[in-house]
Computed example of a mutant assay.
Amino acid sequence: MLPPVLIVSITIVAIEVIVGFTGNGFIAIINSINWIKNKTISSADMILIFLSTSRCILQVTIVIHIHSLYFTDVTKLASVYKAFGAVWMFVNHASLWFSTWLYVLYCVKIINFNQRLLLQIKLRISGMVPWLLLGSLVVSSMTSFPLLWITPSTYLCSSTGNCRENSTEHITNWDSSHLYLLLLYFTGCFIPLVLSVVTSALLIDSLWKHTKKMQCYKNSLRDPLVDVHLTAIKSIISFLVLYLSGFAAQILLTLSTSQSKDVWKVAVSLVIAGAYPSVHSIILILVNSKLKSEFRTFSRYFNPGKLLCLITLG
Protein backbone atom coordinates (compact mmCIF):
# COMPACT_ATOMS: atom_id res chain seq x y z
CA MET A 1 0.00 0.00 0.00
CA LEU A 2 1.42 3.37 -1.04
CA PRO A 3 1.71 6.20 1.51
CA PRO A 4 -1.13 8.76 1.24
CA VAL A 5 1.25 11.53 0.17
CA LEU A 6 2.40 9.46 -2.80
CA ILE A 7 -1.18 8.66 -3.78
CA VAL A 8 -1.96 12.39 -3.78
CA SER A 9 1.18 13.25 -5.78
CA ILE A 10 0.51 10.54 -8.37
CA THR A 11 -3.06 11.83 -8.73
CA ILE A 12 -1.73 15.35 -9.34
CA VAL A 13 0.78 14.04 -11.88
CA ALA A 14 -2.04 12.21 -13.67
CA ILE A 15 -3.93 15.52 -13.97
CA GLU A 16 -0.74 17.23 -15.19
CA VAL A 17 -0.24 14.56 -17.82
CA ILE A 18 -3.81 15.00 -19.10
CA VAL A 19 -3.35 18.79 -19.25
CA GLY A 20 0.04 18.38 -20.92
CA PHE A 21 -1.24 15.95 -23.52
CA THR A 22 -4.14 18.28 -24.27
CA GLY A 23 -1.93 21.38 -24.55
CA ASN A 24 0.99 19.85 -26.41
CA GLY A 25 -1.26 17.74 -28.60
CA PHE A 26 -3.29 20.84 -29.47
CA ILE A 27 -0.12 22.76 -30.45
CA ALA A 28 1.17 19.91 -32.62
CA ILE A 29 -2.16 19.24 -34.34
CA ILE A 30 -3.04 22.89 -35.08
CA ASN A 31 0.38 23.66 -36.54
CA SER A 32 0.45 20.41 -38.52
CA ILE A 33 -3.01 21.12 -40.00
CA ASN A 34 -1.93 24.64 -40.97
CA TRP A 35 1.23 23.20 -42.53
CA ILE A 36 -0.76 20.75 -44.65
CA LYS A 37 -3.42 23.33 -45.54
CA ASN A 38 -1.05 26.15 -46.51
CA LYS A 39 1.71 23.92 -47.97
CA THR A 40 4.19 26.00 -45.99
CA ILE A 41 5.13 26.60 -42.37
CA SER A 42 6.93 29.28 -40.41
CA SER A 43 10.14 28.52 -38.53
CA ALA A 44 8.48 29.09 -35.15
CA ASP A 45 5.59 26.74 -35.96
CA MET A 46 8.00 24.04 -37.13
CA ILE A 47 9.90 24.26 -33.84
CA LEU A 48 6.61 24.16 -31.92
CA ILE A 49 5.62 20.91 -33.66
CA PHE A 50 8.90 19.26 -32.67
CA LEU A 51 8.73 20.71 -29.16
CA SER A 52 5.15 19.68 -28.42
CA THR A 53 5.69 16.18 -29.81
CA SER A 54 8.79 15.68 -27.67
CA ARG A 55 6.89 16.97 -24.63
CA CYS A 56 4.14 14.38 -25.14
CA ILE A 57 6.76 11.62 -25.25
CA LEU A 58 8.48 13.12 -22.20
CA GLN A 59 5.27 12.88 -20.19
CA VAL A 60 4.89 9.25 -21.20
CA THR A 61 8.34 8.59 -19.72
CA ILE A 62 7.28 10.31 -16.48
CA VAL A 63 4.28 7.98 -16.22
CA ILE A 64 6.48 4.95 -16.94
CA HIS A 65 8.95 6.11 -14.30
CA ILE A 66 6.20 6.24 -11.67
CA HIS A 67 4.96 2.85 -12.80
CA SER A 68 8.46 1.34 -12.58
CA LEU A 69 9.02 2.68 -9.07
CA TYR A 70 5.80 1.63 -7.42
CA PHE A 71 3.61 -0.65 -9.48
CA THR A 72 5.50 -3.27 -11.43
CA ASP A 73 8.62 -5.39 -11.62
CA VAL A 74 8.74 -5.42 -15.41
CA THR A 75 11.15 -2.50 -15.76
CA LYS A 76 13.44 -4.03 -13.18
CA LEU A 77 14.90 -6.07 -16.02
CA ALA A 78 18.26 -4.54 -16.88
CA SER A 79 17.73 -4.27 -20.64
CA VAL A 80 14.28 -2.67 -20.29
CA TYR A 81 15.49 -0.20 -17.68
CA LYS A 82 18.44 0.87 -19.83
CA ALA A 83 16.21 1.38 -22.88
CA PHE A 84 13.74 3.43 -20.85
CA GLY A 85 16.54 5.56 -19.39
CA ALA A 86 17.97 6.27 -22.84
CA VAL A 87 14.57 7.28 -24.26
CA TRP A 88 13.83 9.51 -21.25
CA MET A 89 17.23 11.23 -21.55
CA PHE A 90 16.84 11.64 -25.33
CA VAL A 91 13.41 13.33 -25.27
CA ASN A 92 14.42 15.43 -22.25
CA HIS A 93 17.48 16.84 -24.00
CA ALA A 94 15.70 17.18 -27.35
CA SER A 95 12.83 19.08 -25.71
CA LEU A 96 15.29 21.45 -24.07
CA TRP A 97 17.09 22.07 -27.38
CA PHE A 98 13.81 22.74 -29.20
CA SER A 99 12.73 25.24 -26.53
CA THR A 100 16.10 26.95 -26.78
CA TRP A 101 15.90 27.31 -30.57
CA LEU A 102 12.42 28.76 -30.27
CA TYR A 103 13.67 31.55 -28.01
CA VAL A 104 16.83 32.06 -30.04
CA LEU A 105 14.52 32.57 -33.04
CA TYR A 106 12.47 35.11 -31.06
CA CYS A 107 15.62 36.90 -30.01
CA VAL A 108 17.11 37.07 -33.52
CA LYS A 109 13.89 38.32 -35.10
CA ILE A 110 13.03 40.89 -32.42
CA ILE A 111 16.40 42.48 -31.65
CA ASN A 112 18.06 44.80 -34.19
CA PHE A 113 21.71 43.86 -34.59
CA ASN A 114 24.51 46.02 -36.00
CA GLN A 115 27.21 43.36 -36.30
CA ARG A 116 27.54 41.85 -39.79
CA LEU A 117 27.67 38.23 -38.58
CA LEU A 118 24.53 38.62 -36.49
CA LEU A 119 22.77 40.32 -39.39
CA GLN A 120 23.60 37.35 -41.60
CA ILE A 121 22.18 34.99 -38.98
CA LYS A 122 19.05 37.15 -38.76
CA LEU A 123 18.54 36.86 -42.53
CA ARG A 124 19.25 33.13 -42.72
CA ILE A 125 17.75 31.87 -39.46
CA SER A 126 14.57 30.58 -41.14
CA GLY A 127 16.56 28.33 -43.49
CA MET A 128 18.77 27.18 -40.61
CA VAL A 129 15.89 25.98 -38.41
CA PRO A 130 15.42 22.50 -40.03
CA TRP A 131 19.15 21.84 -39.69
CA LEU A 132 19.17 23.08 -36.10
CA LEU A 133 16.32 20.69 -35.26
CA LEU A 134 18.10 17.79 -36.96
CA GLY A 135 21.34 18.68 -35.19
CA SER A 136 19.49 18.77 -31.87
CA LEU A 137 18.27 15.22 -32.42
CA VAL A 138 21.82 14.07 -33.23
CA VAL A 139 23.33 15.80 -30.18
CA SER A 140 20.55 14.49 -27.93
CA SER A 141 21.22 10.95 -29.10
CA MET A 142 24.94 11.38 -28.35
CA THR A 143 24.16 12.46 -24.77
CA SER A 144 21.54 9.78 -24.10
CA PHE A 145 22.24 6.53 -25.94
CA PRO A 146 25.50 5.87 -24.00
CA LEU A 147 23.12 4.84 -21.19
CA LEU A 148 22.59 1.61 -23.13
CA TRP A 149 26.15 0.59 -22.29
CA ILE A 150 26.08 1.12 -18.52
CA THR A 151 24.79 -1.17 -15.79
CA PRO A 152 21.53 0.11 -14.28
CA SER A 153 22.48 -0.50 -10.67
CA THR A 154 19.17 0.64 -9.21
CA TYR A 155 17.57 -2.55 -10.47
CA LEU A 156 19.98 -5.48 -10.41
CA CYS A 157 17.45 -8.08 -11.52
CA SER A 158 17.79 -10.90 -13.97
CA SER A 159 15.14 -12.07 -16.42
CA THR A 160 14.01 -14.60 -13.81
CA GLY A 161 13.25 -11.80 -11.34
CA ASN A 162 16.14 -12.50 -8.96
CA CYS A 163 17.12 -9.16 -7.40
CA ARG A 164 20.12 -8.24 -5.33
CA GLU A 165 18.99 -4.93 -3.95
CA ASN A 166 20.50 -5.45 -0.48
CA SER A 167 23.93 -6.57 -1.65
CA THR A 168 27.20 -4.64 -1.39
CA GLU A 169 27.46 -4.79 -5.17
CA HIS A 170 24.20 -2.88 -5.39
CA ILE A 171 25.59 0.00 -3.33
CA THR A 172 28.86 0.16 -5.29
CA ASN A 173 27.19 0.03 -8.68
CA TRP A 174 24.61 2.60 -7.56
CA ASP A 175 27.41 5.13 -7.07
CA SER A 176 29.10 4.56 -10.43
CA SER A 177 26.04 4.26 -12.68
CA HIS A 178 24.11 7.13 -11.13
CA LEU A 179 27.11 9.45 -11.32
CA TYR A 180 27.45 8.53 -14.98
CA LEU A 181 23.75 9.17 -15.49
CA LEU A 182 23.97 12.60 -13.85
CA LEU A 183 27.07 13.45 -15.90
CA LEU A 184 25.24 12.69 -19.15
CA TYR A 185 22.23 14.66 -17.95
CA PHE A 186 24.32 17.74 -17.12
CA THR A 187 26.27 17.45 -20.39
CA GLY A 188 23.12 17.44 -22.49
CA CYS A 189 21.52 20.33 -20.57
CA PHE A 190 24.45 22.71 -20.19
CA ILE A 191 24.72 24.35 -23.63
CA PRO A 192 20.98 24.86 -24.32
CA LEU A 193 20.45 26.26 -20.81
CA VAL A 194 23.31 28.73 -21.29
CA LEU A 195 21.85 29.77 -24.66
CA SER A 196 18.45 30.28 -23.03
CA VAL A 197 19.91 32.45 -20.28
CA VAL A 198 21.91 34.53 -22.79
CA THR A 199 18.84 34.92 -25.01
CA SER A 200 16.68 36.14 -22.14
CA ALA A 201 19.41 38.56 -21.04
CA LEU A 202 19.66 40.02 -24.57
CA LEU A 203 15.88 40.44 -24.81
CA ILE A 204 15.64 42.12 -21.41
CA ASP A 205 18.49 44.46 -22.31
CA SER A 206 16.84 45.25 -25.66
CA LEU A 207 13.49 45.95 -24.02
CA TRP A 208 15.11 48.22 -21.42
CA LYS A 209 16.91 50.28 -24.07
CA HIS A 210 13.84 50.46 -26.30
CA THR A 211 11.60 51.54 -23.40
CA LYS A 212 14.02 54.32 -22.41
CA LYS A 213 14.14 55.48 -26.02
CA MET A 214 10.34 55.58 -26.28
CA GLN A 215 10.12 57.68 -23.12
CA CYS A 216 11.74 60.52 -25.06
CA TYR A 217 8.66 60.76 -27.27
CA LYS A 218 5.36 62.22 -26.09
CA ASN A 219 3.22 59.47 -27.52
CA SER A 220 0.20 58.24 -25.64
CA LEU A 221 0.00 55.09 -27.76
CA ARG A 222 1.84 52.06 -26.46
CA ASP A 223 4.62 50.92 -28.79
CA PRO A 224 3.68 47.45 -30.12
CA LEU A 225 7.34 46.40 -30.12
CA VAL A 226 7.37 46.73 -26.34
CA ASP A 227 4.50 44.25 -26.13
CA VAL A 228 6.38 41.84 -28.40
CA HIS A 229 9.45 42.09 -26.19
CA LEU A 230 7.44 41.63 -23.02
CA THR A 231 5.67 38.57 -24.41
CA ALA A 232 8.94 36.95 -25.46
CA ILE A 233 10.61 37.74 -22.13
CA LYS A 234 7.70 36.37 -20.08
CA SER A 235 7.74 33.20 -22.14
CA ILE A 236 11.50 32.72 -21.78
CA ILE A 237 11.57 33.46 -18.05
CA SER A 238 8.66 31.10 -17.41
CA PHE A 239 10.48 28.41 -19.40
CA LEU A 240 13.69 28.91 -17.41
CA VAL A 241 11.90 28.81 -14.05
CA LEU A 242 9.90 25.72 -15.00
CA TYR A 243 12.85 23.90 -16.49
CA LEU A 244 15.28 24.65 -13.66
CA SER A 245 12.74 23.46 -11.09
CA GLY A 246 11.99 20.41 -13.23
CA PHE A 247 15.74 19.87 -13.67
CA ALA A 248 16.24 19.69 -9.90
CA ALA A 249 13.21 17.41 -9.53
CA GLN A 250 14.50 15.03 -12.21
CA ILE A 251 17.84 14.75 -10.41
CA LEU A 252 16.09 13.93 -7.14
CA LEU A 253 14.01 11.28 -8.93
CA THR A 254 17.15 9.85 -10.53
CA LEU A 255 18.65 9.44 -7.07
CA SER A 256 15.44 7.93 -5.70
CA THR A 257 14.23 4.34 -5.73
CA SER A 258 11.09 2.60 -4.60
CA GLN A 259 12.91 1.96 -1.33
CA SER A 260 13.47 5.68 -0.71
CA LYS A 261 12.62 6.66 2.85
CA ASP A 262 12.10 10.33 2.03
CA VAL A 263 8.55 9.97 0.71
CA TRP A 264 7.87 13.70 0.73
CA LYS A 265 10.95 14.40 -1.42
CA VAL A 266 9.85 11.83 -4.00
CA ALA A 267 6.24 13.06 -3.98
CA VAL A 268 7.15 16.73 -4.49
CA SER A 269 9.72 15.83 -7.16
CA LEU A 270 7.12 13.87 -9.12
CA VAL A 271 4.69 16.81 -9.11
CA ILE A 272 7.34 19.35 -10.16
CA ALA A 273 8.78 17.12 -12.89
CA GLY A 274 5.30 16.53 -14.28
CA ALA A 275 4.40 20.23 -14.17
CA TYR A 276 7.20 21.46 -16.42
CA PRO A 277 5.99 20.12 -19.82
CA SER A 278 2.32 20.69 -18.93
CA VAL A 279 2.39 24.26 -17.62
CA HIS A 280 4.80 25.44 -20.31
CA SER A 281 2.48 24.18 -23.06
CA ILE A 282 -0.30 26.36 -21.61
CA ILE A 283 2.04 29.37 -21.53
CA LEU A 284 3.00 28.79 -25.16
CA ILE A 285 -0.67 28.82 -26.15
CA LEU A 286 -1.39 31.98 -24.16
CA VAL A 287 1.54 33.97 -25.63
CA ASN A 288 0.87 32.86 -29.21
CA SER A 289 -2.02 34.87 -30.67
CA LYS A 290 -2.82 32.29 -33.37
CA LEU A 291 -2.85 29.34 -30.96
CA LYS A 292 -4.81 31.35 -28.41
CA SER A 293 -7.48 32.19 -31.00
CA GLU A 294 -7.68 28.58 -32.19
CA PHE A 295 -7.97 27.35 -28.61
CA ARG A 296 -10.86 29.74 -27.91
CA THR A 297 -12.64 28.39 -30.99
CA PHE A 298 -11.90 24.85 -29.87
CA SER A 299 -13.23 25.56 -26.37
CA ARG A 300 -16.47 27.05 -27.69
CA TYR A 301 -17.01 24.19 -30.12
CA PHE A 302 -16.37 21.54 -27.50
CA ASN A 303 -18.12 23.32 -24.64
CA PRO A 304 -19.05 20.65 -22.07
CA GLY A 305 -22.45 22.32 -21.46
CA LYS A 306 -23.35 22.30 -25.15
CA LEU A 307 -22.16 18.73 -25.49
CA LEU A 308 -24.33 17.68 -22.53
CA CYS A 309 -27.37 19.43 -24.07
CA LEU A 310 -26.80 17.67 -27.39
CA ILE A 311 -26.55 14.31 -25.63
CA THR A 312 -29.71 15.04 -23.61
CA LEU A 313 -31.69 16.16 -26.67
CA GLY A 314 -30.48 13.19 -28.63
Rank of each mutant, 00 (worst) to 15 (best):
V5L: 11
L6N: 05
S9C: 09
I12G: 11
G25T: 02
I36Q: 07
T40W: 05
S42V: 07
L51V: 00
R55V: 00
I57Y: 05
L58D: 05
L58P: 02
V60P: 01
I62C: 03
H65I: 08
D73Q: 06
K82T: 11
F84Y: 14
F98Q: 01
Y103M: 15
V104E: 15
L118F: 13
L118H: 10
I125D: 02
S126C: 07
L132A: 12
L133I: 15
G135W: 09
L137E: 02
S140T: 08
S144M: 06
L148Y: 09
I150N: 03
I150F: 04
T160D: 06
E169M: 09
I171E: 11
L179R: 08
L181Q: 10
L184M: 09
I191C: 04
P192K: 06
L193G: 10
V197P: 02
V198P: 05
L203K: 05
L207C: 11
W208S: 15
W208L: 13
K209N: 12
C216S: 14
T231L: 09
I236S: 14
I237T: 09
L242W: 01
G246I: 02
Q250F: 06
L253I: 13
L253S: 07
S256G: 12
S260K: 08
S260N: 13
K261L: 12
D262K: 06
V268N: 07
L270Q: 14
Y276G: 01
Y276F: 15
H280W: 13
I285L: 00
E294F: 04
S299Y: 05
F302I: 01
G305N: 12
T312K: 09
